[in-house]
Design a protein around this nucleic acid. Structure first.
Length: 114
DNA sequence: GGTATGACTGTAT
DNA sequence: GATACAGCCATAC
């Protein structure tokens, strides 16, 4: 039971953090996992995103890996859909990679635990 | 219950 | 930048 609660708490934390990502910016799985209190659960963040997508108002397309690569583009139904959403917000994507990643990167720890 | 795989990360070479 | 290894957890077989 406790484990179930922990998992749910982590999932809720991830949801809230992703929802905080401002338009035209993006963050990474590791940053979210760290901000949620589980720095080693970066992989789980991806799994949670797969279940969340944007069906709960969670902009999963703003979440990429630490290199700024759209590793989860396939989870949006069609490849390229994720890049399309990002470009619609003003983020330049080339070859499944975010241009000027360090400029676009948004660190939740820098905003939540301010 | 063991093994393989995956929207990952960090360090080392 | 590319490749290799280790760490972490859930899911499928």
């Amino acid at each position: 039971m406790d484990k179930q609660l922990d998992r749910d708490a982590f999932r809720r934390a991830v949801y809230e953090i992703v929802r905080m990502v401002p338009r035209g910016r993006a963050t990474s799985y590791g940053a979210i996992a760290r901000a949620a209190g589980y720095p080693t659960l970066s992989r789980m963040v991806g799994r949670i995103m797969a279940g969340a997508a944007d069906g709960d108002g969670v902009p999963a397309h703003r979440v990429v890996n630490s290199s700024g690569v759209l590793s989860g583009r396939a989870a949006f139904g069609t490849p390229g859909r994720m890049a399309e959403l990002l470009e619609a917000e003003g983020i330049v994507v080339t070859n499944n990679r975010i241009a000027g990643w360090k400029e676009v990167f948004w660190d939740p720890l820098n905003e939540i635990n301010i």
